[in-house]
Design a protein around this nucleic acid. Structure first.
Lengths: 198, 198
DNA sequence: AAACAAACAGTCAAGCCTGTCTGTTTGTGA
DNA sequence: TCACAAACAGACAGGCTTGACTGTTTGTTT
């Protein structure tokens, strides 16, 4: 009888990944308040003992999940950015891509963490720097995608406004998803933006 | 000895108001997750018995608080709107006013309720129609404040974009309040908007 | 003034959540 | 092969939350 030998390190990594994924899923489905460690371990198919072994406290798990989520967000955004087609409707397509990203489950999870962090200093300490980093990266990426010239006065503010706009649209989408309304707004903004940037 | 006679109806109203106010305060200070009925009654200076008498369940109290908050939001917004000065910087001042409103505690409380409502159908049923109403009112008010002509194509979308923008800015403000950044963005937006609307 | 209803007070039990603890299995280094 | 450490499993206690329940006070009505 051959016993399958799985190295400890890999087992450990897989277990941690499953727990973090389950955490994000719970965040999306139940919200931060409804995300209990018991629920996470059940969903991950991991015993509570194993869970507590890898993440001694709930906060440790959530913080790890935040970092995990940040990477997922970055990767998804980069992938979506690469898929935006070139052409006459470049700006519109870029905005639509951003709008979709900020209405996706990863954004929803981030929103839950964001709101929870407001009244949880330990969580805030973990969330804030990561959010700042991803914010800067997103800004830089958007400038590049739009081919905007940030040396021009006001351009930087317009890009920031665009990102805050999609954030606001994403917030609205978590309650009542209205894709048509969103696209109409973004289309108009694309025209206005094109004019302002040229 | 003269006994002070307070009518039941007024006592009841005052008690309910105190409980609803305390609920909103807890929402802002502790977040939805940290808002327990015990905490609310303590903060309101009301016994748990009295609380349960006026609001049989936590949901009943929260829903009442939502309605209460909606009225407060409407009133605050109307008051702020009336205070916007006329003049050459009208658009900028209107946006600044909106930006401030969407960064105020009432917005923070509303945000907590939105996010909580996403994963709480009972709460969603109470929040959704009220939010829709206040959204429509805010839109109408903004159109009037800006003197925009909604019969022109794209104008409606630009106003919606403006409101979604301030919502996004408000969300950002709950974590890291950066008034300067916000005003810079809004100022640029005002210029762009003025040009697009004329 | 008496009877009734509303308002108010505080205790209690059931349930959930978190983190500690003890015990078992599995991989690793000597 | 043996000893050790990491990984895993599940029971348990302490704390908190919610809503039910009983009892008391206060206002209203007749």
């Amino acid at each position: 009888m051959t016993t399958v030998r799985v190295p400890q390190e890999e087992r450990s990594r897989a277990m941690r990944a499953r727990l973090m994924d389950a955490t994000i899923e719970c965040l999306v489905e139940r919200g931060f308040g409804g995300t209990s460690t018991t629920l996470i371990s059940e969903r991950a198919g991991v015993s509570r003992g194993a869970q507590l072994h890898h993440f001694p406290t709930k906060n440790a798990l959530v913080v790890a999940a935040v970092e995990h989520l940040t990477e997922v967000r970055g990767a998804e955004l980069a992938a979506a950015a690469a898929a935006v087609p070139d052409g006459p409707h470049r700006t519109r397509d870029v905005l639509r891509m951003l709008g979709e990203h900020f209405a996706s489950p990863v954004f929803t999870a981030a929103l839950e963490l964001w709101v929870a962090a407001r009244t949880d200093s330990a969580l805030l300490a973990a969330v804030a720097p990561l959010e700042q980093r991803i914010g800067r990266e997103t800004h830089r990426m958007t400038v590049e995608l739009l081919g905007a010239d940030e040396t021009q006065p006001g351009v930087r503010q317009l890009v920031q406004a665009t990102l805050d706009l999609v954030r606001g649209l994403g917030l609205a989408a978590t309650i009542s998803d209205d894709t048509r309304r969103r696209n109409g707004i973004l289309e108009q903004w694309a025209d206005t933006l094109d004019e302002a940037l040229s």
